[in-house]
Design a protein around this nucleic acid. Structure first.
Lengths: 231, 231
DNA sequence: CGCGGCTTTGATGTTCATCAAGTAAAGTGG
DNA sequence: CCACTTTACTTGATGAACATCAAAGCCGCG
């Protein structure tokens, strides 16, 4: 049952310490008044490449993909992000427009704060600016390192890498529902859809995973890790 | 002839506006006292992956490569950087140790400032912190975008891409001396040395470039761009 | 019910890695 | 300074990995 005159709840947000640990109570309640929350269903686009950046955005809940369109309109996927991995901050301080698109893969909630307001906060409160800097740096580092990692692997190694990522980092479970299509996997690892499917089929034949449509069950994590490492 | 009791010259540094446009004259002269300059010959290592980050470092002059070693000790090259492209800032605010190595490719001068000092400045001066944030963001964005670009090209497209990069961004000349070995090109574009050589040889046979060892002369930039685009 | 998108498998061809071998260039120690 | 070793560069031959093309089944949706 929703309260009338509902009190602002930013002080209870799990993400508070990430971004606002150096923001005072008064200021936090200011932010709380200004912020807007928005929900997205899987497949919905949060941010479209090329749009002007007006808001500072972070993920409260859900899972998204960051992607970019090539000139011949193929999609390249940069990374998958969940809460605590940053999202909109890429480009936020280096460009006026988004260089990547962001699309929900699962029911997703974001929190938006007008960018000018955030900048004013950052200018007034240097510790807050430092926190932001760390977040940006961590998020981009992660993307760069992950892409390097994938670059040195072959087809099977790349697919294994992504399966392990979903199992260990996103779902914390060896059994999960793939939040992406085979084509999206291909767009992420830089191979074709057909060959992604072939890799998955071979894992199935080798009894490393079970596949029921989008549902994946990892049977032999150890072998998957060896493939990811050596592949 | 060097002056005795040489005055501090940071106010004349070309890079002043990049990092220190929001630093007052007094503070700048403080920084100027603290900063250290260091020179490196081609091949010398500025930063070794895994070392603790103690200094804030930026390029004043020269050309460097950022690279990382894989477990089986192959080198992966992330990017090439010249002054104004940032260098040490990757990881500076997100980790205690360097995640990449930095090696000089040409005679290189860097400027170093103790990291704690920089952090104190950033905490006291939020505009300075914002400037840093923009720089970090730009530098990492560039790396991410460039790697995506390369990912979607084939062998010849990747080699063409790099040749154009050197001609247009580094040397501003269609004739230049390659600052890297064939193997380093391979480590950057993610192909083998042999195939890099084959691509270069074919460009030579097709009269797109001339090759004299490390000296490259681009004869037909237009065709090179087409190859880079379509490849 | 039919259309389009997603998935799967097979057949074929291209691209690229690997192996091998040789030349040139550059560093090393006597 | 010269023999010696190592590293960089180059080309060819071969095979493996991957893309492309084709065809068919499946599912959701209008």
């Amino acid at each position: 049952m929703e309260e009338m005159g509902k009190k602002c709840d930013c002080d209870q947000c799990q993400l508070k310490t990430l971004f606002f640990s150096h923001i005072g109570t008064d200021e936090l309640s200011d932010i709380c008044e200004i912020k807007r929350e928005e929900n997205f269903a899987p497949g919905e686009i949060l941010i479209n490449e090329g749009e002007p950046i007006r808001e500072f955005i972070y993920l409260k809940e859900g899972l998204v993909k960051l992607s970019k369109r090539t000139k011949n309109s193929k999609e390249q996927i940069l990374s998958f992000s969940k809460p605590f991995d940053f999202v909109s901050l890429l480009s936020v301080f280096s460009s006026d427009i988004y260089k990547y698109s962001v699309t929900a893969l699962q029911p997703t909630t974001i929190c938006m704060i007008n960018l000018e307001v955030v900048k004013i906060f950052a200018q007034r409160n240097a510790m807050f600016a430092m926190d932001l800097m760390s977040r940006i740096s961590e998020a981009t580092d992660k993307i760069i390192l992950d892409n390097l990692e994938i670059k040195r692997k072959n087809l099977k190694g790349r697919v294994a890498h992504l399966l392990i990522y979903f199992a260990d980092n996103i779902f914390n479970n060896s059994e999960f529902e793939l939040p992406v299509s085979r084509r999206e996997i291909a767009d992420y690892i830089g191979m074709t859809t057909e060959n992604v499917i072939r890799a998955l089929s071979e894992f199935r034949k080798d009894k490393i995973i079970k596949i029921y449509g989008k549902d994946i069950q990892v049977l032999d994590m150890q072998r998957l890790e060896i493939i990811s490492e050596l592949g």
